[in-house]
Design a protein around this nucleic acid. Structure first.
Lengths: 249, 249
DNA sequence: CGTTGATTTGAGTAAGATCAAGTCGGGTGG
DNA sequence: CCACCCGACTTGATCTTACTCAAATCAACG
């Protein structure tokens, strides 16, 4: 399943993410500090495992391109997806702090990741306090995403959950520069959606169709577009604060 | 509902939490740094609001004594409890990073909190890198708790959820030094349990009774004890790593 | 002693799960 | 080129878990 290669460092000066409006530039000095620390790019094919639950943490990554997701499983195989990971997202910060991976991460599409060594994290705090702060910021931000997710899974109905997830992913993909026209790529299968929302596949399917027939989402061929965002938000009881610019490592 | 008073600083040298085995001591220098930054103790009565969702973040707290919980609500009132807070837990770190409270925090019992000002967080990163690291550690740890919670809510049955919650709270209360004999205080009502697990009150009640009759938990008069921890774990499909010692602010 | 919050019980219902097939499209190998 | 395979998606039928509504109990408290 796993096919991974480590390429020589892609020059951070040509980082495709940094120029996006959603990311904080940081000082030139900080940027070169990060660039120097980068070990290279890891490529993982769709379906491959990026981090395996239980193993000791070794590297930390920034997702450079492609989609991934974070999940846990129960011993009998039931799976819960905690979060979807998009370009710019940090992979493995939590694992790094707690010394071992408390969840798995799997590539949803072919993926490339900027790779950092274990010692980098500590170096950040010691020599670049603002970057240390940024790391905590990212941890707090990630926690907020999971907080939102648990609200959905615990208290929203199936339609509301699907609607909320679609809005959420749409906005994040947009911020990551993935929107083309009025559509974003949507590489999740209905099984992924089900596992993210605590629903069965069958019910997920019927609920998606319901939203499709209501004209609230267009979802086909791995592409999602939303006709009336406000209406979909209303269905989901979902209002988020406008996304703040975020640090990038 | 809210009744809060701010007392003059309780001397950190007599901190009742620091000596507990679950907490990291830190250097004497770090301890005095924290002690100096402490503004005083905030007391909130049971049922009072500690942080209100939506408001700008102003203070950060360490829960010194009592129980609290973190939650979000949907616009129609449905409530999801994300996490229970015990002595030693940091309150409002996430809010601090994201500038405003993305969730509410309510006191479950009468509560007292060590209070820190907004500027303290930044000072930590600038002058005490290891404490900055510890802050991120705590954020990562909190995220792990929510990750575990969403696994329960999304993929465990009602019995499994209740069982997992009981084990989880029991172990955490124990680590916070709250175990007396083989029992811990359990100030949550069944409504709290329901809102933490995404269940209705009625079903929560029946499920708790089920576990009681099976002899797996004793829960009465605000007190919880567990006869056979291993058996309860088996019911919950719940195995956690042994708790690591954690930083304390 | 009435009120209030928490827990409990009963009855009926609905949302969503499970089981079982079937479709559809894109590879793959003969 | 075509048969067939496989994964993703669909559909139908049935069943179960958990929800809703309603009311009773019970203890604490003023």
């Amino acid at each position: 399943m796993r096919a991974a290669t480590l390429d020589p460092p892609f020059p951070c000066t040509h980082c495709p993410l940094r120029p996006l409006p959603g990311f904080i530039d940081g000082s030139a000095e900080e940027r070169t500090f990060i660039a120097r620390r980068k070990l290279g790019q890891l490529h993982v094919v769709a379906g491959g495992t990026i981090l395996p639950e239980g193993q000791p943490a070794q590297y930390m990554f920034t997702l450079l391109s492609g989609w991934a997701f974070r999940y846990k499983t129960l011993s009998d195989g039931r799976r819960q997806i905690m979060n979807v990971l998009l370009p710019g997202d940090l992979v493995g910060l939590q694992s790094h702090m707690l010394d071992s991976h408390r969840h798995s991460v799997e590539a949803l599409t072919d993926v490339s990741l900027c790779t950092f060594g274990r010692e980098t994290v500590w170096a950040i705090y010691k020599s670049h306090p603002p970057l240390g702060f940024a790391l905590t910021w990212l941890a707090a931000h990630e926690e907020r995403l999971v907080d939102d997710a648990i609200l959905s899974v615990g208290r929203r109905s199936a339609v509301e959950r699907i609607a909320a997830l679609m809005v959420h992913i749409f906005k994040r993909a947009e911020a990551a520069g993935l929107k083309q026209g009025d559509a974003i790529p949507f590489p999740l299968t209905q099984e992924h959606v089900a596992d993210a929302l605590g629903l069965s596949i069958v019910h997920t399917n019927r609920t998606i169709q319901h939203l499709r027939r209501a004209g609230l989402i267009r979802l086909a061929d791995g592409t999602l577009s939303i006709g009336d965002l406000r209406a979909l938000r209303r269905v989901a009881l979902y209002w988020e604060q406008p996304a703040e610019p975020r640090p990038l490592f």
